[in-house]
Computed example of a mutant assay.
Amino acid sequence: MSVHHSNPLPPHWDIFCTVVDNYGDIGVTWRLAKQLASEYGIPINLWVDDLLSFSHILPLLNPAKSQQEFNGVNIFHWENPIKIEYEAGAVIIEAFACELPSQVKSIIGQLHIQPDTQTPIWLNLEYLSAEKWVDGCHGLPSTQPNGVKKWFYFPGFSPKTGGLICETQLFKQRDQWQADPKHKLALFEQLGLQGINAQDRVISVFSYETPALTALCELWQASSTPIHALIPKGRSLHSLSSLLPCAIADLMPGQQFTLGNLTIHILPMTDQNDFDRLLWSCDFNIVRGEDSFLRAQWAAKPFIWHIYPQEDDYHLVKLQAFMQIYCDNLAPEIATTWSEVNSAFNCGDTNSVVMHWQQLNSVSLPLTHHAIKWPINALNDADLASRLVQFVNNC
């Protein structure tokens, strides 16, 4: 891409995001925007179509305001057409194949044909996948109808991909948090969760609907030691209506229900920092989508990934690809047990998920050791933001 510096673009970057499935896409995009602003000093304009859903993970956000600033990021309500005057930044990112507004594409096209004018670098930030084909597709250009090249940026687990979102100080903060049990107990109290002792087993649940979750909760009721399941209002609870004493709509954060040796706690929604701390504080995490999936890995705890269901069960291909690289250095019996639990949970296989969950107990120590080492290996020496900045500098 030729860049003419006689008429430079403003130094800011534009990131466009449409909110899908409430928190997944915006969760990833918001983390990236914050990191680019704080660690690289890049002015970020973040355009989001659904500020109400966004406010669930950024509680101070006012969904009625068209423009506001948090964490050094300018947040705009993305309306079609854009109602405020738009000035293209040096980099324009469409997150997860969202379609840029026609007026933005028009402005990019006009800048492209003007002599002595810099053309914005146009990137499509794709979904995270562990599949091997990602290596060959990352960084490829596609010439658009207006003549501008759009570059495909694929996050991933190999050095040939765009990397994984991880803030510079995250692992240090996690280790300090996990070094003292008083931190998790203080967090549980802050979240309104009662009766959890430092030695109790605590499991966070942020899944889609599945009968496998019902089967696990019924198993946990018969546990020989206390188990606490921390579950926010939302899709996970729809699988547990038969176990709850009231309608899901009537549940309030802080409520808890004891069923045998299982206590179900209703979690309040948290911002991203507290969600990270929640994952750090639990013994096992059941997560979904992309953002939570990656944060569970950075928590250095064993987890189940409930992947978003796709047509023709293609999500199971993605799951298999990830399990293969996650289990690369694991002993076969541990790898098999962990993989079978994940597969059964995703397939809704109640008998299989119970059987393999019971087998997890015998491999919990080496699985935990693996979970602690995994984040360092997965980062491959460079996180997504640093690789992204390098990619832009090389364009």
Rank of each mutant, 00 (worst) to 15 (best):
M1K: 06
V3T: 11
N7Q: 14
P8I: 01
V20A: 06
Y23H: 15
T29C: 15
W30L: 09
P43T: 03
I44H: 06
N45T: 00
N45H: 12
F54G: 12
H56E: 04
N71W: 03
F76I: 02
F76D: 00
I82H: 01
A97F: 12
A97D: 08
C98D: 11
L100F: 04
I108K: 11
H112N: 13
Q114L: 14
T119H: 11
W122R: 15
E126G: 08
D135I: 03
H138R: 11
Q144N: 07
G147I: 07
F154E: 09
F154I: 02
G156H: 01
F157N: 14
G162N: 02
G163W: 01
C166R: 11
T168G: 02
W177E: 07
Q178K: 11
L187K: 08
E189D: 10
I196W: 04
R201S: 14
I203L: 06
C217K: 07
E218I: 14
Q221G: 05
P226N: 13
H228A: 05
P232C: 10
L240S: 10
F257C: 01
T258V: 07
H265A: 05
P268L: 07
F284K: 00
D291T: 00
S292D: 04
F293D: 15
Q297K: 14
K301V: 02
Y308H: 03
D313I: 01
K318Y: 06
A321D: 13
C327E: 06
T337W: 01
W338K: 03
C347A: 15
G348W: 03
M355N: 06
H356E: 02
Q359N: 13
T368I: 09
L379N: 05
V392S: 03
